[in-house]
Simulated scan of single mutants.
Amino acid sequence: MKASVKWVGGDTFLGLSNSGHNVVFDAGADSAAPSPMEMVLMSAGSCASVDVVSILKKAKQSVQSVEVQLTAQRADSAPRVFTKINLHFVVTGDNVSEKHLARAVNLSAEKYCSVALMLEKAVEITHTHEVVQGG
């Protein structure tokens, strides 16, 4: 896998993935895009969400929406790394099984989400979830 990041002025950078997709990053106070650390956090959430949705679909759950709410704590001094991350999954659907959701979240956390599994070597990562019936 390859990628590049190019400075485009001010505190703004443009990332280009090997698959040809552009992503804007911004580290300034008046940022026009997410910071690199925000992107890392959202990457963990999107990686885990892909797993959870896939597992719930395979379990034939009637899922209408999946949202992961991410919260993180960072070190007080440089380098301001993440020290804790929580991924809270909110799944809405018709008769979605709490048991199936718990299994999907656990499989993502323990086996499939490469981003979170990589981060947990240095960060305390927790997972919580809830089912909202109907929608």
Rank of each mutant, 00 (worst) to 15 (best):
S19A: 13
H21D: 05
V23Q: 05
V23G: 01
A27M: 12
G28E: 08
A29D: 14
P34L: 10
M37I: 12
V40I: 15
L41M: 12
L41V: 12
L41H: 08
M42A: 15
M42T: 15
G45D: 10
V52F: 08
K57D: 14
K57Y: 06
V63D: 02
S65A: 13
V66F: 08
V66Y: 00
Q69G: 04
Q69P: 00
L70Y: 02
L70M: 13
A72V: 02
R74A: 04
R74F: 00
R74N: 03
R80G: 02
V81P: 01
V81M: 09
T83W: 02
K84S: 05
K84I: 02
I85T: 05
F89K: 06
T92R: 11
T92K: 13
G93Y: 04
G93W: 10
V96E: 01
V96D: 07
E98R: 13
H100P: 01
V105E: 10
N106W: 01
S108W: 08
S108T: 07
A109M: 04
E110T: 15
Y112W: 09
M118K: 01
L119S: 07
E120W: 01
K121W: 07
A122E: 13
V123G: 10
V123N: 04
T126R: 09
H127I: 02
T128D: 13
T128F: 09
H129N: 15
